[in-house]
Design a protein around this nucleic acid. Structure first.
Lengths: 228, 228
DNA sequence: ACCTGAACACCGTTCAAGT
DNA sequence: ACCTGAACACCGTTCAAGT
């Protein structure tokens, strides 16, 4: 085909197309060629909008975080000075919403890993967490560390969950001695070698659940927010 | 070249070659073709040892975790019943060693994301954490959740740090309005919109530090291990 | 300014064929 | 059993050229 008439896309249209690909065909399908193809343009034309694939991926994170509801849960009756329980509830709700948002899209975690979370919407989230932690009584520097720790926990949780879900048929291989001469100390025999791990296998099986996420989150908050 | 005489490699030799590539040329260089090439064989020959690239990556994680020192720090004088402080010190040391191990190798985080941590050496780590948490007085089910939460925190921390380090020249793009028509609610102006984030910018600048890692880890442990 | 077409230097994986 | 060579269906990115 020849150049034809000039077409033009907004960044939002391009990102929408990218998310369509992400949801229907997975993270691997979100390629420069793939996104360009679904828009009906050539891969090189996409470089007019995003200077690299990484820039496109970072745009997608922002697009996703723009949809994160940062409002406090429940009360349309906005209390001026919410109590400690309400603040805590807000943080937990925020973390759960972030988790939902990122686990709803297959491979969204791959987006997070593509670069730092420093876009405007990532900062909106950070600012909201800072507000909550200072409202909970933390000094501003401690609130910053707490907000970071909370994001670390939330993203780490999503990362491990998605890694677990990517279990492939090759999973059987490691059980029959992957490193016959690796270190000598690590001789894999069977589950009996790890008594505690076997006894808690039923707990491990639920690691991916929301309950496990909330449990750890609550313990982290126990440590972060000083108890009265 | 013709087939030539039969060459044979151990899994350890292949993984060593893969880690050489990882350290000298980065995660992208750890390709089936790349690893095979550094061994002097054809890409297809590598499929004799590992049935997929993912299986190779999972082998690398295990290779790495085999080098994780799980021993309690300090005491050659092994006390029979260590006190709470010693147990806590051991967990922190373990987390720091894990962090060192994974941050020492560029792109090691990419390995973690390639599949579930269910190899023998990953289980060795899990078992050690379970021992520590039960020794700290936790019921076995809670110990399992605690061990998982701790790994979530450690890996999440490493993930965010490596994402921050991958900052590229495209980072300037998002600051001048990436989504002019995305949602309408997210209008990016300047840092003044996020007063708390600006006030804590100096703390954020140290997010990558070991201090930040330990601070959050200590808070998590505050919540995980019941205080006397 | 926006787009095309061709090209460069790569990927993971499969398959028939050799020894 | 272990390996090669060719092939398939892809990648991200660059560049000269068109309108």
């Amino acid at each position: 085909m020849r150049p034809g008439p000039r077409r033009s896309f907004t960044h939002a249209e391009i990102l929408d197309a990218a998310f369509d690909l992400l949801e229907t065909k997975g993270f691997a399908a979100v390629s420069v060629r793939g996104v360009a193809g679904s828009l009906g343009i050539t891969p090189t034309a996409l470089y007019t909008y995003y200077s690299s694939k990484n820039a496109l991926l970072r745009g997608m994170i922002e697009h996703l975080l723009a949809r994160l509801d940062l409002r406090a849960p429940g009360g349309s009756d906005s209390v001026e000075a919410p109590d400690a329980a309400a603040i805590r509830r807000r943080i937990v709700t925020l973390a759960l919403r972030l988790r939902e948002l990122l686990t709803a899209h297959t491979g969204a975690l791959g987006l997070i890993m593509s670069g730092p979370l420093d876009g405007p919407n990532a900062m909106r989230l950070n600012e909201t967490l800072l507000e909550s932690f200072t409202a909970a009584g933390l000094a501003v520097d401690d609130a910053a560390r707490a907000a970071y720790a909370l994001q670390v926990y939330a993203l780490g949780s999503i990362a491990l969950e998605s890694a677990d879900q990517d279990a492939d048929p090759d999973a059987a291989a490691p059980t029959d001695g992957l490193f016959p001469d690796a270190s000598g100390t690590a001789l894999w025999t069977d589950l009996a070698t790890f008594p505690l791990s076997s006894r808690t296998a039923h707990v491990v099986a639920q690691h991916n659940s929301t309950d496990q996420f909330v449990w750890g989150l609550e313990r982290l908050l126990d440590g972060l927010v000083p108890q009265p």
